[in-house]
Each structure stands twice: as C-alpha cells, then as structure tokens.
Design a protein around this nucleic acid. Structure first.
Lengths: 329, 329
DNA sequence: GGGGAAACTGCAAACGGTTGCATGAACATC
DNA sequence: GATGTTCATGCAACCGTTTGCAGTTTCCCC
C-alpha cells in the first residue's frame, strides 16, 4: 500500500536503481532524469523505507540515548538538545530509561544494539569491563564517565565545586558536609576529589556523608547525619538531594540558609525556581557535543576524543553566613 | 560480522526457516529442535535484525512519541512512563520535540511515519484536518486533544479547575484572573470553559487574560495585566506560567500569597518543591494508558476509545485569603 | 496395512532498497 | 578513424527475516 521505489520507477520510466540513486547518490544521475524522478516521487508521495535501506546499507539512521531517569530534571535538557541536534543530520533518537538499575542498562543496550548506529550513554553505572565489551557491538559515546578508549563528554564538576567551597569560605563557613552520591558515578568521584582538595587548601573540615540515593529521598534521609556532624553548610551530590534535604530540614523547623546553607549540583529547572544555590551543568551543550562525537565516530573511524565542559557556581538564596557567626579567628 | 539466522541454522543443522520459527512462532517447531536452535543461538550470541524483520512483517516494533517541549517539566514523567510501558511489549520509542512549532510537528510526523508502527501525539497543535490526513499513514493516539475518530487520552482539567475555584472562594476571593494559554490547546479550552462555568456558579468575577506563551516568559509578561485587573487570585494555564508570574511579582516586591494567590496547572516537580498550589495532572498514568490504546489499535483494528483521567487540586503555600480581607458580605 | 490427519521441516519467493558490474552512448585524443 | 574516457543507466545479486506451500514422517484408526 505504501509507495515504493518501484512505483516511482514505473511512473517516471526509469529503472529502480536510477530512482535509488536519485535519492542516495544524486550526482550519479543526469539532472533531467533526476528532475523527472523527483517530480514523480513528489506526486506519489514517496518516502524511502528506512528498514529496507538499513538492511542493505547497514545503517539505520537511528541513535540510542540511554539515561538513568528521564524524570530527573537533570536529563530533559540534555535529551532535548541531543535529539534536536541529531535530527539535523536526519537521525532519529530512541530514548530509554534504566530506572537507575544496572541490569536494565545492560539489557537495554543489548536490545538496542541491533537497531541503532550508535548510542549515547549518559552517566552509565555499568562496569568499565562491560562497557568495553558492549562497545564491540555498537559505537558509544559516554557522557560523564571516562572509560578507556571511548569518546566521552565530561561536565567537570571540579571547577564548580572549587567555586562553591570558595563561596562558602567567603561567607565564613568552616565545617562543611558533602553528601556523596552513587559510588559508580564519575561525577560523584570528581566531586569528592575536588571538594577534598579544596577543603584541604582552605583548611576546612569536610564531613563526607554517604553514599546517598541520588533522589529527594536520599537527601531527606541524610538530614540526621548532617545535623549530627555539626556542619554549617552542605554540598549535595545533586539538586534532588539538596532539595530533599532542604524540605526535610524545613520540616524540622530549621531555616535555610539561616541555620544551614545548602548547595546543589545540576542547576535544574527546579533549582532555578526554588532559589537553590547550585553548580550549573552545561547539559544542553553536552548533549550536542556528544551527538557530534557520535556521528563523527560512526561515519569515520577516527580516533575518539574527549570533550570537557566547565561548570560554574550559581549563587542564589540557599547560602548565607553561618548562624553562629564564625567569620574567622 | 553480526550473527544472523543463517549462522544459527548452520550451527544447529536446520534450515533458516526453522530458526526463524523458533523465535517468531515457537509452537510450530519440535521442542527438541527448538532447544538445539536456542542453544546454538545463545552460544553464538544471536539477536534478530529488526530491520530485516520489519521488512517482511511490516512491523518495526517502534513507536513515536511527539511532544511540544521535552524540557517543559510537564512532559518527562509522561515520557518516562510511556517508554517503560512500551518496553514491556518489546517496543522501542522515538522521542521527538517540536519546540512548540506546528511546521516542525507535521514534518516530524511525516519523517517518522515510515519507521514506526504508531505514534503518540501529546497535546498537538496541528489542525484537526491535518491530524486526520496524517493518521492515514500512521495509527495515532492523541493525548489532551480530541479529534474525531481517533483514540485519545484526556486529562480533564475541568474537575481540578472547579476544585481550584472552590478553594479560592472558600478563602474569600471574589475577583480572579485566568491566564489563558495557546488557543489551539485543548487543555486551555477546557480550562477556560470550566473556569467560566464555575465562576458563574459561584458568582465570581473572572478576568481572562491571554493568550500567553506557555512558558515562564509568558507568566512574567502577564504580571502588569494581572495587577491592573484588580484580581486577588490567579489561575494560570500551567505551572511554568504560574512560576514566571510568581517570580515577576516577587521581583516587584509583592508577596505571594500575601498580596496575591497563585494557582498553576500540571503539578510539576518544580511546583512540588516551590510550594505552588496547583492542579495535578496524571501524566504517568496518561502515558501508560496511551501506550495501551496505541498497541491495541496496532494489533487489532478495533474501534478507538477515549480514556478520561481526572485531575485534582493540590493545595500548597501559594494560596491564602486575600489581603484586603473580603471574607464575604 | 492402508488411508488420512497431524506435526514438523525445507524450499523459495517475497519485503524495499543499494550497489558492483556491464552496457551503451557521447565525446575527446592523437 | 581507431582508441580511450566519461557519463548515465540497466541488470541482478544481496542485506536478514518471514511465510505460503509442499514434502516427509509419524501416528491413529478402522
């Protein structure tokens, strides 16, 4: 029922191969013939069948985008940018959600492998070994993770973390809690590292509390530990954790930033509206960069590169000088 | 290089058709043979090629999900739910974003039509005529729109709107502004209708202001009109508009809910954390229901149905009695 | 033990494109 | 005017799977 290349060939009086070339290698066909074919195709409403094309070219024109949790406001801007950017090169994007589960992630990649030209893994939790193994089946580009020999886009939270601690120091904080995230998270590792270094540099006490679930629940659950630690400021693994903590603290009658300062990571839509001081992650730029790398990797087998994007602190209303006024010696 | 049905056939000493049947019509093959084939397939790591399968079955196993703006926090929960639900039936989902543009929407549908078995249109802005025309190419299910003869899932904002106005009445408000959204939006039409009826029923004055862009910018831009209207409470088209308005008002030194009460629509993640009173939209349930309808429509040609889901008011901190204390006569 | 049904498997033609090779025409070169 | 090139097109095999049809075997029943 659908219009095929055969119908177009018949209507324009040429062989199917000429029609095929008109659309996939236009320079090989005489301009006049081409015009006739195109006219016939338009008249009939011809659209190439991508499955058929995929079968002979071994190129589907599809990409996979695998994230931990679509509903986590960190991801949508990245998804939006990646998808829009891919479309410019006539690629469609499968979006899938692993629900933060490693098993689901692997199975998802395997099931997608057969029908995409490449995939974007955003902050994958898979082991490096498994990532390497799976990358034999599909070209990958990884975001916020740095496996050997794979192209990666990194949003380096370190620069933002340094700015965050400087900000807290300048406000007079000396005891800071770090709510860590999942162990397997590259961002978490960088964050811990950068915070530890910066704390040492500034002579601060850093209380590491975690690992916490990267959700509001994780943040809420961390409240007792934070209060027990005696810290006057908190740097949380991400905005969700920060917001969860914030809500829990307010529920206990504490004021933010009056009694405690809180800083998140991601600069999500929610953080912007709730007045949360946070570290901005360039998600949209990362999505575009990752698609660029992926397409490059697919078309030419050139060496994989790594793109690193900077982050920066955005100061809003959830940080202030500590209540007890330790403004220095 | 990839393992095909042929390799499996060779390894297990049967014809390719038997291998094919093992995976697509298992009851047609002898249990012992089947076991041998499955063993060989596993040993070789065989995965069926979906493009090839699509070519002969005319079923791709893919669905399209088309939304106005992935980064609008209304959509991600729906996308997440739809995608997860589709996966349970071994379907993959293309997600695409029209950026609120009608032209993009049409082109997107056309380009996807050739490689999906069906598509979900969420709150499409296309004309009914065009929707009908395009639905000849692909089975559609529409969310928050009600074109003739198409299956639809509706989140009926009317029930929530009634509750919202009752809530405002009970607080003592008498003059209410309604910030309307895009004309082509079904939700907007229902909202206007329900608010008008409820206002009449309660003897309220309703100031309709709009249409506004369904974004924070739209809400901020509406602030002067709201203030000029003399309304003491606002019902906004969605949470983004409400939050944009809220920010603008606070920027002008006004207090919410002290000077003005604000109610949004959607119950987004952001609204939850910012303490915005809003109307909850059952987005996840709608996503699942829509996928169900779509798969049913694809597999059996039965009559399209319409599913209507209720909405309800969620009271938070952005509503309070009016400043001037009109608590009744 | 012969006829027929049922169960299983193989054969080969699709599905809708792409592409290496062959053919033929037009044209330039010496 | 024979030879070589270039350009445009047709031919046909192929991509990996499905599926209608036909053949073979097994089994049942009279």
């Amino acid at each position: 029922m659908a219009v095929t290349i055969k119908d177009v060939a018949h209507a324009s009086g040429v062989h199917v191969s000429t029609v095929s070339r008109t659309f996939s290698a236009a320079h090989l066909v005489n301009p006049e013939t081409r015009a006739r074919v195109v006219a016939a195709a338009n008249a009939l409403g011809y659209r190439p069948n991508r499955a058929a094309r995929a079968l002979s070219t071994r190129r589907t024109g599809n990409l996979g985008l695998i994230v931990a949790d679509i509903a986590n406001p960190f991801f949508p801007p990245l998804i939006k940018a990646a998808q829009a950017h891919a479309r410019r090169s006539d690629h469609h994007v499968f979006v899938a959600d692993t629900d933060e589960q490693v098993r689901a992630e692997e199975e998802l990649i395997r099931s997608m492998a057969t029908q995409v030209d490449g995939a974007l893994l955003v902050a994958p939790r898979l082991s490096n070994r498994l990532i390497a193994e799976l990358s034999a089946d599909v070209p990958f580009v990884v975001v916020n993770r740095q496996p050997a020999n794979l192209p990666a886009v990194l949003m380096d939270v370190a620069s933002g973390a340094r700015q965050a601690l400087e900000h807290l120091v300048s406000l007079g904080h000396r005891e800071i809690a770090l709510l860590t995230g999942p162990r397997a998270s590259w961002t978490n590792q960088r964050l811990e590292r950068a915070a530890t270094d910066a704390a040492e540099h500034h002579g601060l006490r850093l209380h590491r509390l975690g690992p916490n679930q990267p959700t509001e629940g994780g943040g809420a659950g961390a409240a007792p530990g934070v209060l027990a630690s005696g810290a006057t400021a908190v740097l949380a693994y991400n905005d969700l954790v920060a917001l969860g903590l914030l809500q829990e603290l307010r529920g206990r009658g504490l004021a933010v930033p009056g009694d405690l300062s809180v800083i998140g990571v991601d600069n999500t839509h929610t953080a912007r509206h709730c007045g949360l001081t946070t570290i901005d992650m360039p998600t949209a730029a990362a999505g575009r960069a990752a698609i660029d790398l992926l397409l490059r990797r697919i078309t030419s087998e050139d060496a994989p590169g790594t793109v690193t994007l900077d982050t920066r602190l955005v100061v809003r209303g959830s940080t202030a000088p500590p209540a007890d006024g330790f403004q220095g010696p």
